[in-house]
Nucleic acid binder design. Structure first.
Length: 287
DNA sequence: AAGGAATCCAACCGCAGTGCT
DNA sequence: GAGCACTGCGGTTGGATTCCT
């Protein structure tokens, strides 16, 4: 015994939704709330599969959906998150609550992927060895979603190394005080300025000879170079997302900030920081 | 102006994880 | 515990629109 079938395959309408169908669906959901999609076509009389109703609601009719052009900030976030998470569109969408995973996926496939491949085909390879920004882009702006998954062992190891890192105020070389974004490894930390460091480069700090204090260096490091630090950050981001998914079964907007768990502050703060977003927008000078 | 190519995006398909009976 | 449906997700498709020649 299981549940009754989702919907009969015969008599199910396919193709674009009409305004009338939209009105019926929205009216029903306004009254009953989203969820229990199986009952939606039954109770509304819509000749649509429950799956189709859910998709129409989540991708188009759901309140709070922002349509139209993506802002440079959003574009930057998508690029960075795609580099970190791969083609996990739902995960990426959870950081852009106004956009649907379908929108993001489409935008990536139609705009961003082309921009990136175009950049790759026209860039000077010599830059890669000299520029940290380029290093980031060349490592991560490929349409390769397996980077993270293929390295879980390394991620686990690095996860341990994360412990102990904490946030504090730092002074950038230009004298500005700011909240640091810290990526930690065994012997060094990378403190990333949100306003002083161009193109998301980070001031690297290293442990002094006694192994007690962090010494700022002049060395810059790209925040998103796909190195060990980022694998660690990614692990945390992924965990957070999994937890988030577990709590969201309705398809209704979730506020990422509201559900943020504390240990993820580095990445989430960065991703959701409007100021940082402007830098994201600057980062792909490739575009 | 016409028609072919390219682009965009809503919607569908199929799979996997989860939960109900 | 098995079997099945429900839900969510990523990949893909196809019709509509825009661009180019």
């Amino acid at each position: 015994m299981g549940r009754p079938p989702c919907c009969e395959k015969v008599g199910i309408k396919k193709g674009p939704w009409t305004p009338e169908e939209d009105i019926i669906l929205v009216s029903y959901i306004q009254e009953h709330g989203p969820g229990n999609w199986r009952s939606v076509p039954i109770n509304t009389g819509l000749s649509r599969c429950s799956k189709s109703c859910r998709l129409r609601w989540t991708n188009y009719l759901r309140p709070g959906i922002k349509r139209g052009n993506f802002t440079p900030h959003e574009e930057g976030m998508i690029i960075h998150l795609q580099a970190l998470l791969g083609n996990k569109w739902a995960a990426i969408a959870s950081y852009l609550p106004q956009r649907t995973d379908n929108d993001i996926k489409n935008y990536w496939n139609t705009h961003l992927k082309k921009k990136i491949s175009k950049f790759h085909s026209t860039s000077d390879p010599q830059m890669a060895s000299n520029s940290t920004t380029f290093q980031f882009t060349s490592k991560n702006y490929t349409d390769n979603s397996s980077v993270y998954a293929s390295n879980t062992e390394n991620v686990s190891r690095l996860l341990e190394e994360w412990t102990g890192s904490s946030s504090k105020t730092v002074t950038a070389p230009n004298g500005n005080r700011e909240l640091p974004r810290i990526i930690s490894t065994k012997n060094s930390r990378t403190e990333c300025s949100s306003s002083a460091a161009p193109s998301f480069q980070c001031y690297r700090r290293q442990v002094d000879q006694e192994g007690k204090n962090m010494i700022p260096t002049d060395e810059f490091e790209s925040i998103l170079s796909f190195n060990n630090q980022n694998a660690t950050a990614l692990e945390r981001l992924s965990s957070s997302y999994s937890a988030r998914r577990g709590s969201d079964s309705s398809g209704i907007d979730q506020n990422p900030k509201a559900e943020t768990n504390a240990p993820l502050s580095f990445l989430e703060t960065w991703l959701l920081d409007e100021t940082a977003g402007q830098e994201v927008m600057d980062l792909p000078q490739i575009f």
